[in-house]
C-alpha cells in the first residue's frame, strides 16, 4: 500500500485495538536515546532525538520519507556500522548500557536485537536452513534443531504452510510468506528486540494483515520497534508512536530529520499536541 493510498482512504485512522493499557511513559525502557545525532559524511541526517522505547511494547516510527526513521532504527542495533560514512553521536542506552561504548561488540548487539527489512531477504537456502542460520552462527545450544525450527515457524504462524516443504528453497514462497520467514528467522535466536523497517511495504493487504496479527502475538515475548509508512498500520498495531519529520533550517536551508512528537498511539492519533503531527496524520502535510 502506498502512502497516497493510505491517506486517500479517509479521515485520520483511529486506533482499533484500544484494549491494551499503555502507561504514560514506558515502565521499563529497553532503549533510551539522549540527544541522538546521526551524520552521513557531512550530511546531518538526524538531529537531537531523545526518547525511550518500552519493554514488550510495539513502538511505531512514522513520518514522511527521508525524515530519518530507518536511520534511527538502524542505529539501535548498530547496523549503521556497515555504512562507512555513518557517524553516531549522543547517547543510546540499551538496558542502561551505552551501545556505542568503546567495549561494545556490534555482533553481540545484533545477536540480541534482530532486524527485519523492507524487502524480504531470505537466504537462497532451504526454509529449514534459513531458520537454523541464526542459532548456528551464534553458537546457540540447541538440543534438537528440528524442534527449534518447528517451534519458531509455529511462533511465526508459518508452520502449517511450510511444514511439508522445509527442505525447499525459500524463494519458492510467496512474498508475504518470505517476509514471515524473515521474521521467523529473526526470532529463532530468541532475541530481546525485533526491529522492523517497513516490513509490509512490498506486500498486499492480506499478507500485511497476517504480519500485523503476528506482531500483536510476538509483543508478548519481544520488544518490537517498527518503521511504517502506513499510518493505519501504526494505529492498528502500535502502543506508542513517534512522529518524525524533516526540519528545514530557515537561514541555511539545511534539511535534517527530527522527532516532533512521541506519545501513546491513541493520543497521537486522537489528540496530537503538535500541529505538524495533526497535519501529517490527517493527510494535509507530508
Amino acid at each position: 500500500m502506498t502512502d497516497q493510498a493510505t491517506r486517500a482512504a479517509g479521515p485520520a485512522p483511529s486506533p482499533q485495538r484500544a484494549a491494551r493499557d499503555v502507561p504514560d511513559v514506558p515502565k521499563e525502557p529497553v532503549f533510551t536515546t539522549q540527544d541522538l545525532n546521526i551524520h552521513y559524511g557531512s550530511f546531518h541526517a538526524v538531529t537531537d532525538v531523545s526518547m525511550e522505547f518500552g519493554k514488550n511494547e510495539i513502538t511505531a516510527l512514522i513520518g514522511p520519507s527521508g525524515c530519518g526513521k530507518s536511520t534511527v532504527l538502524r542505529c539501535l542495533n548498530r547496523m549503521n556500522d556497515l555504512i562507512p560514512a555513518a557517524r553516531v553521536s549522543g547517547e543510546v542506552r540499551y538496558h542502561g548500557i551505552e551501545l556505542y561504548g568503546p567495549k561494545i561488540d556490534p555482533i553481540e548487539v545484533r545477536r540480541r536485537i534482530g532486524m527485519v527489512f523492507q524487502k524480504a531477504n531470505p537466504f537462497p537456502k532451504s526454509i529449514y536452513d534459513n531458520i537454523a542460520y541464526g542459532p548456528r552462527v551464534t553458537g546457540m545450544k540447541v538440543d534438537n534443531m528440528d524442534d527449534l525450527v518447528e517451534q519458531t515457524l509455529r511462533r511465526a504462524a508459518l508452520w502449517d504452510e511450510v511444514k511439508d516443504k522445509l527442505k525447499q528453497n525459500a524463494y519458492g514462497l510467496s512474498g508475504g510468506q518470505q517476509q514471515r520467514l524473515c521474521i521467523a528467522r529473526a526470532i529463532a535466536t530468541n532475541p530481546d528486540v525485533v526491529l522492523m523497517d517497513e516490513p509490509c511495504s512490498a506486500l498486499d493487504p492480506i499478507a500485511t494483515l497476517r504480519i500485523e496479527e503476528l506482531m500483536a502475538e510476538l509483543r508478548e515475548l519481544y520488544t518490537i520497534i517498527i518503521v511504517t509508512h502506513n499510518m493505519q498500520q501504526a494505529a492498528r498495531v502500535s502502543d506508542r508512536t513517534a512522529f518524525f519529520t524533516v526540519k528545514v533550517n530557515e537561514t541555511t536551508g539545511d534539511r535534517t530529520g527530527g522527532l516532533v512528537e512521541y506519545d501513546r498511539t491513541t493520543k497521537i492519533f486522537e489528540n496530537p499536541s503538535d500541529q505538524r503531527t495533526e497535519g501529517y496524520i490527517s493527510g494535509r502535510f507530508g
Partner: peptide, 25 residues
C-alpha cells in the same frame, strides 16, 4: 545487498557472512 544485511542483522561475524552467505550465494 539484502543478503549481506540479513546475515549481519542476525549477528554473523564477517567470516560467517563470507563463508555461509556470500560464497554459497
Amino acid at each position: 545487498g539484502g543478503l549481506r544485511e540479513a546475515a549481519y542483522g542476525l549477528g554473523s561475524t564477517k567470516m560467517q557472512v563470507a563463508t555461509k552467505v556470500v560464497v554459497p550465494s
